[in-house]
């Protein structure tokens, strides 16, 4: 059965969707991704959908779901590279995905994930700074 590869990149996971999504594939991806987050202790997930040309309401809901699931698992999700046509379709479907973070490219998405990590008070980076206490 087809699977979408999940790559580990430092503290983050990179999911590149390069084939047309169908429902079963999306569900498998949800399963794989959630277990991988727990297993790897990932702090962020980057979903690259720049090759995705066709999107339906199910896919839109799936993106929202994945984002919510990773948030529960203490990680951030950034969806990157959405095509204009896909964005228009999602908006027309009434799915503006309010809870999903987005970025233009993998590069910018990675920067956003890093920035979000630094912002978290619990990450300890700031507390350890000499002048912060």
């Amino acid at each position: 059965m087809d699977r979408i590869p999940i790559l580990k990149l430092g503290n983050f996971l990179l999911v590149t969707i390069q084939v047309d999504m169908y429902d079963q594939l999306a569900i498998t991806l949800q399963d794989d991704l959630t277990s991988k987050i727990v297993q790897a202790g990932a702090k962020g997930v980057l979903i690259d959908i720049s090759s995705l040309e066709v999107v339906d309401s199910f896919m839109g809901r799936m993106l929202a779901n994945i984002s919510e699931m990773t948030r529960v698992l203490d990680a951030n999700t950034v969806v990157v590279g959405m095509r204009p046509a896909v964005a228009i379709t999602l908006v027309e479907l009434g799915l503006s995905l309010p809870g999903v973070q987005t970025a233009l490219s993998v590069d910018k998405g990675m920067a956003l994930l890093n920035a979000m990590r630094e912002e978290r008070p619990s990450e300890g980076l700031r507390e350890r700074k000499p002048g912060a206490a």
Partner: peptide, 10 residues
């Protein structure tokens, strides 16, 4: 809608 679509793209 335009704003929402642009946001979806990042």
């Amino acid at each position: 809608k335009t704003v929402a679509a642009a946001r979806l793209m990042g």
